[in-house]
Each structure stands twice: as structure tokens, then as C-alpha cells.
Write a protein that binds this DNA or RNA. Structure first.
Lengths: 200, 200
DNA sequence: GTCTATAAGCAGATAGAC
DNA sequence: GTCTATCTGCTTATAGAC
């Protein structure tokens, strides 16, 4: 690891280990090794494992959610939004394949973690998209669909194939490389599927 | 807990705890308490925590996957299959909301668990559905779609809303009861969405 | 700030009585 | 088969030297 500040090294190492092993599976010793420092130093910067985890987890939420929501807020046409979204999701998740299960599992363990950060409230804003869905439906360009069903459908189709990768590969008999290509192809396949479903 | 055989009590208790806490988060003491027996007895029936977990996990796979695949194998029309599938997924997952994240997380930890049970190989068979997709496309009833994209799309839309429930509730500002209703409505909304996407 | 050494408690596993 | 008691090693956390 390059010469970063110690605190930064700790956060990076902790993130790597926590994402791979989860809160309960991670060991402080492992994190210390990954950071190239001593175990005691972890406790010097973050009093406990719990606090270290919380710092890491909140940082992840703050880094990810705004990125994904920024597209919804833009003034792009609906179809363009969907294509951009698919592109960004696939690119991001190909680089961080363990992220979805990590985040979702830890939220199942303690959903309150979503409410500890006031910053998130500002980021989460779907008004623009909501208006867009209504106005496009009024114009007859798409079938009416609620913002809730819309969001759940698009996010599910983008994220779940990464979370359930081992299951899908087994069930569909797909090798690693072919599955990566399949995910890549979903950058265009999902938007096409989605637009087709929305046709009036 | 009623008077079942000890071994059965252990399996049930272990399943409850493992599903809630995961392999690494669960404690043998907790499982013993849940089963109303002593910790030593767990080791008498299953030598180690690892073996107990494996027994529980394999049993879960064997119980779930055949149930979900049986629909695909039937000779029902495509549209009926999709509606039946949505109904069964929602009903099952409303009763076992923690199942998806548990299974997927443990498979991420050790994907080999999917290959330890030969029984599963017989169950997993999509030939019938595959033929159906091809023949319906040839008849012009649906747009062509690969079995892989079809499966990933339908399963993602069914399962992910349960796995990501805390996230969706927060982002969409939905209370518990309303979210349960929303999931219920997906028994028909998802099939409608899906059939619309498949129209040629 | 960073280390070594060690405390204190916990978890998995076993021995042995009944 | 089931229990109590105990061992052993691991894990978090702290004390204290540098």
C-alpha cells in the first residue's frame, strides 16, 4: 500500500475486509494486516470494531447513493436516463461486485444505519423522475407506471444479477467469462426490455 | 417449542438463527437456547458448527429450488407460467423475507455449496422453458429473448424487492404496511410489465 | 503516533458423570 | 442421550514503553 495517511490506510483496508467478510466475519487482525499496521492502532483511531465499521459503512452509503441518484435528477429524456443508468450500474458493479450483498446484508442486520446520516436525505430526490413519468404518460408516450414500481423494476434488474451471480451461473450453466459478457450486454438489453414494457 | 425429536429441534433452531445472523454471526449457544437444549448436545449430533451449518444450508437449497423450478418445467402457456411464478414467489418470500439475503450471502462466501448436492442437478432443468421461448418467438407471439436474460429478469424482479426492502422503503419513503401491499400488488404488476416487454 | 505485550472475555469443542 | 464443567484457542480491547 502506498504512503497515505494512517487513518486513510485504515479506512481503505477496513472497507476491503468488511466488504469481503461482513461485519461479523471480519477480524481486526486481518484489517491491521491489510493496512500494514498494528492492531492496536485501529483502536487508537476508532475505539471499537463497531465504530470502525460504522465509519466505513456510512462512507460507502455517502459515496454510492448520490452517484446513482444523480441520473434520476437530470433533465434528460426518460429513455436516455434509462440507458445511462444501465451503463453506470454495470460499470460500477463490475468493479465492485461484492458491494450489493454487503450493503444489503448489513442493512438487514440493522436498518437504522440508513437514517444516521442526514446528508442522504438531500440526495434522495425522485420528484423530477416522478413528474417525468406522469407527463410522459399524459402525452401517451408511455403506459402509466408508479414511481415505486418503476424504481424497483429498474434497480432490481440492474443489481440483482450481481448479487445472485453464483446462483445464476450454476442454474444457467454459465462460465465466469460468459457471465461477465452477459452482464455487459445488459447495458443495452435491459433498457430495450424496459422501454418495450413501457410502450403504451 | 413442541416435543419434536432432538435432532429435528436442532435443525429448526439452527435454521432460524443462521438465517437471521448468518454463519459467522450465529453462536452455538444461541442455537442451543433456541432449541431448548444444551450446547454440548449440538456437538453430539453435528461434530462442528461448520457441519451443522452445512446440513441446514443444503436442506434449505433442496427445499426451495425444486419448488421454484417446478413451474418452469410445466406445460402451461408462457403467460400463465409467469403469473403463477409471481404468485408463488411473493407468497413464499412474504413468509421467509430473510431467506434471499441469507442464501445469496452464504453462496458468495462459498459458491461450492451449490455443487455439493447432486440432487439439485436433476431439479434444475430449463429445457422446456427454452423451447417455449423459441417456439413462441417463431410464431410471432413474443419478441425473441434468450433463456438467460429471461430468467435473470423475472427472478430479479421477484426476489430483489425483498432483499433490498430496507433500502427501497427508505428511498421511496414507504411504511411497512404499504410496502407489504406493494409487494402483493407485484403478483400481477410484474407479469403485466413482463408480458408487455415481450410483445413483438 | 506507533509499537509490544498482555489482559479479559468469548466461542467452539471435549471429557466425563449420570 | 443429555447434562455440567472445563479446556483451548481466538478476538477484542487496553496498558505502557518508545
Amino acid at each position: 500500500m502506498k504512503e497515505l495517511g494512517t487513518e486513510k490506510k485504515i479506512i481503505i483496508a477496513a472497507r476491503n475486509i468488511f466488504i469481503r467478510k461482513g461485519m461479523s466475519g471480519a477480524r481486526m487482525q486481518e484489517i491491521a494486516d491489510e493496512a500494514g499496521i498494528n492492531k492496536a492502532l485501529l483502536h487508537y483511531y476508532y475505539r471499537s470494531k463497531e465504530q470502525l465499521f460504522s465509519a466505513v459503512f456510512q462512507e460507502i452509503l455517502i459515496q454510492i447513493l448520490p452517484q446513482l441518484f444523480s441520473i434520476f435528477k437530470s433533465d434528460l429524456p426518460l429513455e436516455v436516463k434509462i440507458y445511462q443508468l444501465a451503463e453506470r450500474y454495470v460499470d460500477f458493479l463490475q468493479e465492485h461486485p461484492e458491494m450489493p450483498l454487503f450493503v444489503l446484508s448489513e442493512l438487514q442486520r440493522d436498518p437504522q444505519q440508513l437514517f444516521e446520516n442526514l446528508e442522504l436525505s438531500k440526495v434522495i430526490n425522485l420528484d423530477n423522475l416522478k413528474d417525468q413519468l406522469i407527463s410522459e404518460a399524459e402525452k401517451g408516450n408511455i403506459r402509466p407506471i408508479s414511481i415505486e414500481q418503476f424504481m424497483i423494476n429498474i434497480v432490481s434488474m440492474m443489481v440483482f444479477p450481481f448479487a445472485a451471480r453464483p446462483m445464476f451461473q450454476r442454474v444457467l450453466s454459465i462460465e465466469d467469462e460468459a457471465y461477465a459478457e452477459l452482464l455487459e450486454s445488459r447495458k443495452t438489453e435491459v433498457p430495450k426490455f424496459f422501454m418495450s414494457a413501457l410502450r403504451p
